[in-house]
């Protein structure tokens, strides 16, 4: 089990390194966010092994979403401050201790860089 998590974290470090390299060459839009960030964020969000956000949230572009948690719509109105959205993904139990949402950052389920990318994706929904 422990060895498995080490493999997982090594893999994610490599993934982040690759992601990082990709970012350098991505085109940046007027809003300051490259399209590829959002696409990468979506990939992480939809991956069952990473964010698996569709297990609980309805998200545009995702199939067979769960209904445990609110649909991810109008995110900029709900979270005008992007940092607050990121904090919610990082550890939702800070705001509500019994939240079923996994603390993605606190429990290192995905890396900090991956949380950044997921935040970019969710923020524009």
């Amino acid at each position: 089990m422990r060895r498995f998590s080490r493999i997982v974290s090594t893999t994610s470090i490599i993934a982040v390194a690759i992601t990082g390299l990709g970012l350098a060459s991505a085109t940046v839009s007027a809003a300051g966010t490259s399209k590829s960030d959002i696409e990468k964020g979506q990939e992480i969000a939809f991956s069952r092994k990473k964010g698996n956000c569709l297990a609980c949230h309805k998200i545009k572009g995702g199939k067979l979403p769960g209904n445990i948690a609110p649909p991810l719509v109008a995110m900029q109105q709900r979270f005008p401050d992007k940092a607050k959205l990121r904090a919610q993904i990082f550890d939702s139990t800070v705001a509500s201790p019994n939240s079923i949402m996994p603390p993605f950052g606190r429990h290192k389920i995905i890396s900090g860089k991956e949380i950044d990318l997921v935040t970019e994706f969710i923020y524009q929904l």
Partner: peptide, 23 residues
């Protein structure tokens, strides 16, 4: 790692969909 109790799924969210499955 996912920080879930038995109750989170089978009490708080019983009857809700987790992806395509009902809890």
């Amino acid at each position: 790692q996912l920080n879930m109790s038995c109750a989170n799924c089978h009490q708080d969210n019983a009857g809700n969909y987790i992806r395509a499955d009902i809890l």
